[in-house]
């Protein structure tokens, strides 16, 4: 186990190194001038040149790259060219927002995917309707779904808020930065409820597509396992159908489902970038979007590195969970 984790950490470092090279290369090839974004559109050529020197942009790319890498090794993600504050500081407030939305989206995807799978396998009469609704939702682009959701649930019905994270300001009342959890920890049920209300629309829109993907894999697994020899034996021994489903079908279907959850969790992060912009969610996606608009390389690189770490950690967790779910598997 320890060797497995060490290997994963080593591979993560490799991924992050490759990311920095790719990002730096793309920045160089793009022809974008970060100094111009930094100093403002009307700035004179002299001011622009001074800024280039100030930001070290007059140095050869290789020198700037190793400067950046050196800072990174000391935990310095540099200052954002956009906000003029440390990137780490900006991400420390944006990341919890994204984590909260991602967790709710993934949780909702699991619930919806499970309902979809169980209703399909048990051939419940209304399963067709659920399937049509979920498949329709998953077929629509996430941004369109979110826009339509806003128009209907906010514009027409007034049931859900138009965007943002909370009606109680942008500061979380607790230590984690997760409004629902912090609200509950601080005894502020109103803050927690309000946060849930802000989460419903974006989380649901992000969750639908992964829910269908997870549900489909689970359906396949359940179908195979429900007619397997061990399920048949359990039934003949008098085990109730519900227990057969839980102990034999669900558990044995978990391996493939967990793999799919891992893949979908990674893809879900991509969907969040778009949704965050639409609902003004102050997360990493919004941070990235604004950084790209401002040609803010430290900001872009900071987000990319953070998401790289999250992606590797997620996959490691999924691997560990798969082994926990199926003892026949061995970490390698």
């Amino acid at each position: 186990m320890i060797m497995f984790i060490i290997r994963r950490i080593a591979s993560m470092l490799g991924v992050l190194f490759a990311l920095t090279v790719a990002l730096f290369g793309l920045q160089e090839l793009s022809g974008v001038d970060p100094a111009r974004a930094y100093v403002g559109a009307n700035a004179s050529a002299e001011a622009l040149e001074r800024t280039r020197v100030q930001l070290g942009l007059d140095q050869p790319a290789i020198v700037r790259y190793f400067d950046y890498l050196g800072g990174l090794l000391h935990g310095d993600l540099q200052n954002s060219l956009r906000t003029r504050t440390p990137v780490a500081e900006g991400l420390s407030t944006a990341f919890p927002a994204t984590v909260e939305l991602a967790l709710w989206s993934l949780g909702l995807a699991l619930v919806l995917g499970s309902i979809f799978a169980v209703l399909t396998v048990t051939r419940w009469k209304g399963a067709g309707i659920v399937r049509v609704v979920l498949l329709s939702g998953a077929s629509a682009p996430t941004f369109l779904l979110t826009m339509l959701g806003l128009l209907f649930f906010y514009g027409q019905l007034g049931l859900l808020p138009s965007g943002g994270r909370s009606s109680f300001g942008s500061t979380s009342p607790g230590p984690t930065g997760l409004f629902v959890l912090d609200g509950l920890l601080a005894g502020r049920v109103d803050v927690a409820t309000d946060a849930i209300w802000h989460l419903i629309l974006p989380a649901a829109c992000v969750a639908i597509s992964p829910a269908v993907a997870i549900g489909r894999v689970l359906v396949d697994g359940l179908r195979i396992n429900l007619v397997s020899d061990h399920a048949r034996t359990a039934r003949s021994a008098g085990m109730p159908e519900g227990l057969v489903m839980l102990r034999h079908a669900v558990r044995n279907s978990l391996g493939a489902t967990l793999s799919m959850i891992g893949i979908q969790a990674g893809l879900l992060l991509g969907g969040l970038v778009v949704v965050e912009k639409i609902v003004s969610w102050p997360g990493v996606g919004s941070y990235l979007d604004k950084s790209v608009q401002a040609s803010d390389f430290p900001g872009i690189a900071g987000v990319a590195l953070l998401l790289g770490v999250v992606y590797v950690v997620l996959n490691t967790l999924v691997d560990l969970l798969q082994v926990a779910a199926d003892r026949r598997l061995v970490l390698s």
Binding site: R123, W124, L226, V227, E241, G242
Partner: peptide, 26 residues
């Protein structure tokens, strides 16, 4: 003689009731 369970037999009424109950709770 042991028969292979058909998918239809894999949806007993009790399970369906639980699913409906869960849906109602949600």
């Amino acid at each position: 003689m042991i028969q292979s369970p058909t998918p239809r037999r894999a949806r007993p009424t009790r399970l369906r009731t639980r699913v409906l109950t869960a849906a109602a709770l949600v």
